[in-house]
């Protein structure tokens, strides 16, 4: 017990270089007579071995779960994607890249990719400014601030399925939402929210924004806590207005948070599934399909697991390449080194 305690604190403190003196005091019986530096080296070797063992032991559970439930399935999906397979019998028909060619030449899939890109761009352009603005406001001393914060965060806490079903029922033709519009004198705005193929993508985007704005706002509020007050005070003393302070001090210092939020938002948009699936099923007439709904609809529901796997791999590769590029060029300042070089 004492050994493991000590080793972990050492790992935490100075990443591996273990002071020999402490090791000596822990195991006095192990010290042999002889030249001082040789004993020390032997100790260091033994300690390094022990340290590796501990790292292995502590990392093993997470690593096993990761390998079994993340890496292996990804590899298996990649393997299946080269076969024609209905999910029942053994793999018998190798088709090479046919599944990929089929997906990439299917206008419905390309449409789905387009919808994903729409969500990526619209989320950044619409959700970002709204969330930053709301966070700046909620960061000021304000009566009922806590209540407001909770209200804004509730949609995010709500289960996606519940939120999706609720909105689907609210937005049905002549449904409660239309009645609400009529009641407040906006009856003229009534639309076939989920049935109009030209409108439905925007409807889904609005609901998705409603659902995830709370998360963005909370993230930005947390980021704002890390902005030192002294800077704003100094700016105020220099005569900067509230707006100038936000524009030139707060928002630039919020940069790391914004960049992380944008990353999560883009990945989420690329993999968007549940809200779309529940509200529209990707329809009507594929007007709201995303790569993920396409995969479920054409791969799994149609019992073409090889093809579905190919779509899954495409979705994975797109997200992965994007993540690498983003980390390399945008996040490099914030998380310096975790992806590119060893932490020294």
């Amino acid at each position: 017990m004492s050994i493991s305690d000590r080793s972990t604190t050492e790992v935490g403190r100075d990443r591996g270089s273990i002071p020999a003196g402490r090791a000596d005091s822990a195991r006095p019986a192990a010290s042999q007579p002889g030249p001082m530096n040789e004993t020390r080296r032997a100790h260091q070797r033994r300690n390094a071995r022990r340290l590796n063992l501990f790292i292995a032991l502590f990392a093993a559970p997470a690593l096993i779960v990761y390998l079994t439930f993340v890496l292996l399935p990804v590899l298996l999906a990649a393997f299946y994607s080269f076969w024609k397979w209905n999910g029942l019998g053994p793999l018998t028909e190798f088709v090479g890249i046919e599944n990929y060619a089929r997906a990439l030449s299917d206008p419905v899939f390309l449409g789905a990719v387009g919808h994903n890109l729409f969500f990526v761009i619209a989320s950044l352009l619409v959700q970002g400014p709204i969330a930053i603005g709301a966070a700046l406001l909620l960061n000021r001393p304000l009566r009922g601030r806590t209540v407001l914060r909770v209200a804004i965060f509730i949609p995010y806490v709500l289960s996606e399925v519940i939120a999706g079903v609720a909105w689907r029922l609210l937005l049905q033709p002549n449904g409660p939402f239309d009645s609400f519009l009529a009641a407040v004198g906006l009856g003229g705005l009534k639309q076939l929210w989920l049935a109009d193929t030209n409108l439905v993508l925007w409807t889904v985007f609005a609901v998705v924004s409603w659902k995830y704005l709370g998360f963005a706002i909370i993230l930005f509020l947390a980021g704002l806590q890390g902005v030192p007050e002294e800077l704003s005070e100094a700016a105020q003393i220099d005569g900067a207005s509230w707006w100038q302070t936000q524009r030139h001090i707060t928002i630039p210092l919020l940069g790391p948070t914004i960049r992380i939020w944008a990353f999560l938002s883009i990945i989420g948009s690329l993999q968007l599934f549940d809200m779309v699936w529940i509200m529209t099923g990707g329809g009507p007439a594929n007007a709201t399909s995303t790569m993920a709904t396409y995969m479920i609809q054409f791969g799994f529901q149609r019992s073409q697991f090889g093809f579905g796997s190919a779509v899954a791999v495409i979705l994975f590769v797109v997200s992965f390449i994007f993540a690498l590029i983003y980390q390399r060029f945008v996040l490099s300042r914030d998380i310096g080194g975790t992806m590119s070089r060893r932490v020294g």
Binding site: V70, V208, G268, Q271, M295, I296
Partner: peptide, 23 residues
């Protein structure tokens, strides 16, 4: 829209479960 689990991952797990059962 962030912080969601990868659907593909879930799907792949299902596939893997099937294979594990097979082999």
């Amino acid at each position: 829209m962030k912080n969601r689990r990868s659907i593909m991952r879930t799907a792949a797990v299902t596939l893997a479960a099937g294979t594990l059962a097979l082999t």
